[in-house]
Design a protein around this nucleic acid. Structure first.
Lengths: 158, 158
DNA sequence: TATTGTTATACTCTATAACTATA
DNA sequence: TATAGTTATAGAGTATAACAATA
């Protein structure tokens, strides 16, 4: 997987030079993300869930009664695109929705027992899948990395 | 931008709990990437280029004579999807292609002067755009972060 | 008037299969 | 037979506009 042994005209592998791209954090983040994402995708697909569905399920479990517009904000998914995900989770019996009595425009979302079990199982499998890549870092580096990602998201230095 | 002030039923902002997602590196990488990507996208769009086009242009400049299948490997873009990008770069006069005499199936790609100027200009603007986010880290943290990204991509520890 | 959930739609990215010309 | 570039196409994911119900 990903061996750089493309044949150049003389039959030797070409070493790719790069003076710019590797210095761009967006490019580097994308490459790292693309290492992880397909593995998470595959694990979740085994249970018929997409990544977005798993994310929604997880946030609903951690925030019982959350409504779609709040979920939309939290996960940065367009309200309109959330609809199909929520429908899917409900039809599979992983969450349920009921109208908020004080504001009948909104639906309070809660996970079912089945949904909670699904998340717990998939959390373990996803962590295992990520381990193939994240395991390249030792414990100190992992903590550093997650800390730096938090800093990038705007959390102030410790 | 991204203030978490969604109104809960009682009129106070809901604090979103998260016991699982934040511990998944894929989720965290995606969030960081989504902070950077739209900014790079916007800068490149000002010159009518997409991110993939800029990446290709840059690798072609650094590797004159590279052919499409090598570029495809280097950037992990499907050969078929590269075609439109290369066409675009050529039509805009940023690169040129000529058949490789020793293997007439292949086209050697090289950047024009105009292409090199375009890259130089866009490299500066992209770095500036990324700075809004990456600037949240100090110099030592930046070096650490890029180093850890390299480690994730499989480069052995120093 | 504004907001929530919804529908319809379009656009970009990405993936796959099959073709051609060359090797 | 295999490979490079190409075409066509389909599937995700994402973004926007407009609507009904409710506030």
């Amino acid at each position: 997987m990903s061996q750089p042994d493309e044949q150049a005209e003389d039959g030797t592998a070409r070493i790719i030079e790069d003076t710019v791209l590797g210095g761009l954090i967006g490019y580097r983040l994308k490459r790292a993300y693309m290492l992880i994402q397909p593995r998470a995708h595959a694990v979740l697909a085994e249970e018929g869930l997409r990544v977005a569905s798993f994310s929604c399920l997880s946030i609903i479990i951690d925030n019982p009664g959350i409504v779609q517009s709040e979920l939309s904000d939290a996960l940065q998914i367009e309200r309109s695109n959330l609809v199909v995900v929520i429908d899917e989770l409900e039809q599979r019996g992983l969450i349920s929705r009921k109208r908020v009595p004080t504001d009948r425009r909104r639906y309070a979302l809660t996970a079912t027992l089945r949904g909670r079990h699904m998340r717990d199982r998939l959390t373990k499998k996803t962590h295992l899948a990520e381990e193939v890549i994240f395991g390249r870092l030792n414990q100190e580096e992992r903590a550093q990395f997650l800390h730096l990602l938090e800093r990038l998201e705007g959390r102030p230095a410790r």
